[in-house]
């Protein structure tokens, strides 16, 4: 029997007041910026646990993640580095 699970690729996370989240509407734009000199990172999450941290780059039009930390090999349940690398701009698009 082969067990499978769903893996989410989480690009960023941040705490926002509930009312700000509720007010997000189409055409609002959020920006994610890695710290200067760093790659954009993505967390791979399965069953609520961070299983790996990967850097992201565009190669030949494809989004490629390169694993930089593997949390499964260190035991499950370890908290990964947080990706607090985004800022929010309200309705910057053509709306």
């Amino acid at each position: 029997m082969m067990f499978t699970t769903v893996v989410d690729a989480v690009l960023a996370r941040a705490k926002m007041p509930l009312e700000v989240v509720a007010a997000l509407s189409p055409n609002d734009r959020l920006e994610v910026e890695p710290p200067a000199g760093s790659h954009l990172l993505v967390q791979l999450i399965a069953e609520g646990q961070i299983i790996a941290l990967a850097s992201v780059e565009v190669v030949d039009g494809l989004l490629i993640a390169t694993i930089v930390e593997n949390h499964l090999s260190n035991g499950p349940g370890l908290a990964g580095r947080r990706i607090d690398q985004w800022k929010r701009n309200k309705a910057m698009t053509t709306a």
């Binding site: 989410d8 690729a9 989480v10 690009l11 960023a12 996370r13 941040a14 705490k15 926002m16 007041p17 509930l18 009312e19 989240v21 509720a22 959020l30 994610v32 993505v42 989004l63 985004w86």
Partner: peptide
């Protein structure tokens, strides 16, 4: 309404 909530951006 004012409670902070953690929001994730999922690719």
């Amino acid at each position: 309404r004012r409670l902070p909530i953690e929001v994730e951006v999922v690719l």
